[in-house]
Design a protein around this nucleic acid. Structure first.
Length: 298
DNA sequence: TCCCAGGCAAGGC
DNA sequence: GCCTTGCATGGG
């Protein structure tokens, strides 16, 4: 009986975002929970491009999609339908998450600002390389270096776009190649990382706690606490992490505590505060503050 | 010219 | 464990 009541309530009140798989892609229907522009431009991935007509080309691993708005709906045109359903995290109920996060003025404003952000489920290899490149770097330049990496080592697809290189392709390249990408001193990290990952099976993460996975990630070249958290968040589905970078430091000092603390202490504080929703909170706050610059979110 | 960017590695304590 | 320093590159 209780089960029946639950089911009834589920049907009536639990409004999951509607999306429809089609033969040439996915249609995300009139939803406040999906906005491709905010999703793509909030800094969680680097392989996208905006066309003159406002549509986006999105690349991940060896998959590609064209994303554009039709009226109030979003079309994700792709051959890799299942891949992008997972990539855009379409099966997760963000209305529910946002409701949990809306506990005050700051989060209300950040969620409103980044309406339609979702956390990407990206390829592990692509994510770890991308975020090693991201360290102490600027987003436009990160994008350029990642693109150089794909064009230099990846397979050319029929469309003319390039796939992210496989670990085998990366291992066929020497140190000079990695140093020619424009990555600066990170070139040698990328070279070492490719060797370290040559025989690595990412499935080992499945049996590890988030802390254990984090410790393992930090052993790789160019991966420190912040990059590890980004890999956990954007490719390993761990939402109970809070990557702390320069922007989060600013956020921390503006809206939380003003005492000078280490990044690690900030991270511990923010994880304690947001718990299993830490990753979502981080992405909303990061995006809003980065777009606002020195101005306040509230 | 100086400062900074989704930090990390290495070394000292 | 915590703190400091040096680090390629390029845009403001």
């Amino acid at each position: 009986m209780n089960l029946l009541v639950d089911f009834f309530l589920f049907i009536c009140y639990h409004k999951y975002m509607k999306f429809e798989k089609q033969k040439d892609g996915i249609l995300v229907k009139n939803s406040e929970e999906f906005d491709a522009q905010n999703f793509l431009e909030c800094g969680q991935l680097f392989r996208y491009r905006k066309n003159d007509d406002g549509s986006y080309v999105v690349l991940s691993k060896n998959n590609e999609a064209k994303v554009y708005k039709i009226g109030e709906d979003w079309k994700i045109e792709t051959e890799a339908v299942e891949y992008f359903v997972n990539f855009f995290d379409l099966k997760t109920d963000y209305a529910k998450i946002n409701k949990r996060l809306c506990d005050g003025e700051l989060m209300n404003a950040a969620i409103k600002f980044g309406e339609g952000i979702r956390l990407v489920n990206n390829d592990f290899l692509e994510t770890i390389f991308s975020f090693v490149i991201s360290a102490n770097n600027r987003i436009v330049r990160i994008k350029r270096v990642v693109e150089n990496l794909c064009k230099g080592a990846g397979t050319k697809l029929l469309s003319g776009e390039f796939a992210f290189p496989t670990i085998k392709q990366l291992n066929e390249k020497d140190l000079d190649f990695f140093e020619s990408l424009g990555a600066g001193y990170r070139g040698v990290y990328l070279y070492k990382l490719s060797r370290e990952l040559a025989d690595f099976d990412e499935l080992v993460f499945e049996n590890l706690s988030t802390d254990e996975a984090r410790k393992l990630l930090i052993k790789f070249s160019g991966v420190g606490p912040k990059v590890a958290d980004c890999v956990l968040l954007f490719s390993l589905g761990r939402r109970n992490v809070f990557p702390v970078d320069t922007w989060v430091e600013k956020i921390y000092h503006k809206y939380f505590e003003s005492g000078i603390k280490s990044r690690n202490k900030m991270r511990e504080f923010l994880i304690e505060k947001f718990g299993d929703d830490a990753g979502y909170a981080q992405q909303y706050l990061f995006y809003a503050q980065r777009m606002k610059g020195d101005k306040r979110i509230i």
